[in-house]
C-alpha cells in the first residue's frame, strides 16, 4: 500500500517540480486568471455592493477557466518520447497512475487559487477577509472534484484533434453541479443567515462520485 502511494506521490512530484522549474503551467494559469479578473471588471464595472454579490460566481468562473489551461497540459509531458507507454508499462496499477496525475494537477490548481483569492478580494475591493478560511475550504472542496473529472477528461482528449476546445466542451457542462453548489455555498457564506451546509453536502457528493469513478474510468481508457 505505502509502495503504491509512493508511486503516486513520485508521479505528482515529478509534475509539480517539473512545472515549477520551467514556470510553465503555473505562471500562465496565474496570469490568465488575472486577465479574466480584468475582463470581469471591465465588463461589469461593479460597485462595492455588486462586487460582494458577484464574488462567488466570479471566483468560480475564473477558477473553471483557469483550470482548463492547466488540464490542457496535464498529459503533455507524457506525450513526448513514448513517456506514457513507459508509465503504463511500470508495475503500478492504472488507478494509482491516475491518483498521481490527479494530485499533481490538484496541487498546481490549488497554488493558483491561493494566489488568486487575495488578489480578487483586493482588486474588487470586497471586505470578506474574516471568512477567508471558510472560503478556502469551499474552494478546496470544489477543486477536488473539478480536477478529478478534469484530469480524466484530459486523458480522454489527449490525442484528439483540437483537444483544448474539446476539453472545454466536455468539462463545462459536466461540472454544472459543482458550479451551482460552489457558487451557492460561497453566496450563502457571505450572506447573513445563508445556509451553507446543503451545498457543501452536494460538493462532497460530487467529489466522492468522481474520485471513486475516475481511477476506474482511467483504467478503461488507457488499456490497449
Amino acid at each position: 500500500m505505502s509502495k503504491l502511494l509512493r508511486a503516486a506521490y513520485r508521479i505528482a512530484w515529478k509534475d509539480v517540480v517539473g512545472d515549477w522549474r520551467r514556470r510553465a503551467t503555473l505562471s500562465s494559469m496565474l496570469f490568465f486568471a488575472i486577465a479574466v479578473l480584468v475582463v470581469f471588471q471591465v465588463a461589469f464595472d461593479p460597485d462595492r455592493l455588486e462586487a460582494t454579490r458577484l464574488l462567488p460566481g466570479l471566483l468560480w468562473v475564473t477558477i473553471l477557466f483557469t483550470s482548463l489551461m492547466g488540464l490542457g497540459r496535464v498529459f503533455q509531458a507524457e506525450e513526448e518520447d513514448g513517456a506514457l507507454e513507459g508509465l503504463l508499462l511500470s508495475a503500478v496499477p492504472r488507478g494509482v497512475l491516475f491518483l498521481g496525475k490527479w494530485s499533481g494537477n490538484l496541487l498546481l490548481t490549488l497554488l493558483v487559487e491561493l494566489a488568486l483569492l487575495p488578489l480578487t478580494l483586493v482588486l474588487f475591493n470586497v471586505d470578506v477577509w474574516g471568512q477567508l478560511p471558510a472560503i478556502v475550504g469551499i474552494l478546496l472542496l470544489g477543486t477536488l472534484g473539478l480536477t478529478g473529472l478534469g484530469v480524466l477528461l484530459a486523458a480522454m482528449t489527449q490525442t484528439a484533434r483540437s483537444r483544448e476546445t474539446l476539453l472545454a466542451l466536455l468539462l463545462l457542462p459536466l461540472t454544472a453541479p459543482l458550479l451551482i453548489a460552489g457558487v451557492q455555498a460561497l453566496a450563502a457564506l457571505l450572506q447573513p443567515g445563508g445556509e451553507v451546509e446543503p451545498w457543501l453536502r452536494l460538493l462532497v457528493i460530487f467529489d466522492l462520485v468522481y474520485l471513486a469513478l475516475a481511477p476506474w474510468a482511467f483504467g478503461w481508457l488507457v488499456t490497449e
Binding site: L152, M156, R161
Partner: peptide
C-alpha cells in the same frame, strides 16, 4: 476528433458512463 477507431470507441464509452453518473447529479 480521435483518429484511432478503437480509442474513439473506448473514450466515448467511458464518457457516456461518466455522463450517466453526472446527469442525475446535474
Amino acid at each position: 476528433a480521435l483518429e484511432d477507431p478503437h480509442k474513439a470507441a473506448r473514450a466515448t464509452a467511458v464518457l457516456a458512463i461518466i455522463g450517466a453518473v453526472d446527469l442525475p447529479i446535474i
